[in-house]
């Protein structure tokens, strides 16, 4: 078992606290079946060239969308050598909540300091909507633990700009913290409204050859329907359930889909 990054410095009044879904991502990404897939896909450093990755495409860029506390991205960055077979990865986080971005930076830096010989390079946590400001075609591994709870409507963003800013004199109001937290779980119709927007961005944002995405879903998101949708994106799109937890009435409560394209990349 690889150590779980500490989030003891994070205020869970306005940032999502790591829970069963976060831990399922950690378990899935570090399971031998998944590390085998990632090792194959992203190359091993060649001993002859002292740590230079065989792939001419260079260090893979790992992006977590909606990092919250940063526990998942911190885990991936800190244990790069175990997950990818080498530590030459770049990691980047995004979140719509600026408090989550700050929390993520600290979580990743603390976890990396505790894994001095195995961690990758953490770039930044950037405040944005999903992948809005990321250059198309640059993401090699995308990880998304979305707001998946079915709700009557999505959070109202008309006050987001004010709520997203820390007010040092008055502190955060209850309304502010409630709004920020709701962004981490409220998913609208079938809990899929935000996830559907991310799925629309996938073909453009992923590296066309080696891009792969990990998406967490709950049973109410109708995972089979989501998988059908992904296969319908076009020729070559593949999707597989690679992690699951907590059976409820015969249904997997949570599951993780791996989404990627066939025929890519060459194994060496």
């Amino acid at each position: 078992m690889l150590p779980t990054p500490s989030t003891s410095h994070v205020s869970f009044d306005n940032v999502y606290e790591p829970a069963e879904d976060s831990f399922l991502l950690l378990d899935t990404l570090s399971a031998s079946s998944e590390t085998h897939f990632l090792h194959e896909r992203f190359g091993q450093p060649s001993s002859a060239t002292e740590g230079i990755v065989d792939s001419p495409q260079g260090a893979p860029l790992i992006v977590e969308v909606g990092t919250g506390s940063g526990v998942v991205l911190a885990f991936v960055n800190a244990h790069a050598d175990v997950l990818f077979g080498h530590r030459h990865i770049l990691t980047l986080g995004t979140d719509i909540n600026s408090f989550a971005c700050r929390a993520t930076e600290t979580t990743v830096e603390k976890a990396s300091a505790e894994a001095p010989n195995g961690h990758g390079i953490f770039l930044d946590a950037v405040n944005m909507d999903l992948t809005a400001a990321i250059r198309p075609g640059t993401v090699d591994v995308l990880i998304f633990n979305p707001p998946y709870v079915p709700t009557a409507e999505l959070p109202n963003l008309s006050q987001h700009h004010q709520y997203n800013t820390h007010n040092p004199s008055t502190g955060n109001s209850f309304e502010q913290d409630s709004h920020l937290l709701s962004l981490s779980y409220a998913g609208g119709v079938e809990g899929m409204e935000t996830t559907n927007r991310l799925l629309e961005q996938l073909p453009e944002i992923l590296d066309p050859e080696r891009g792969v995405a990990y998406l967490l879903l709950c049973a109410q998101n109708k995972p089979e329907k989501v998988k059908e949708h992904i296969r319908g994106l076009g020729a070559g799109w593949l999707v597989e359930t690679v992690g699951a937890s907590g059976k409820h009435g015969g249904w997997e409560k949570l599951q993780i889909l791996r989404i990627w394209r066939a025929g890519s990349p060459p194994a060496t």
Partner: peptide
């Protein structure tokens, strides 16, 4: 123009630009 404050860049757009 996207602001950077205390090292965190803000790429959120006002609603009329989304």
């Amino acid at each position: 123009e996207y602001k950077v404050k205390e090292g965190i860049a803000n790429f959120l757009l006002p609603s009329h630009l989304v």
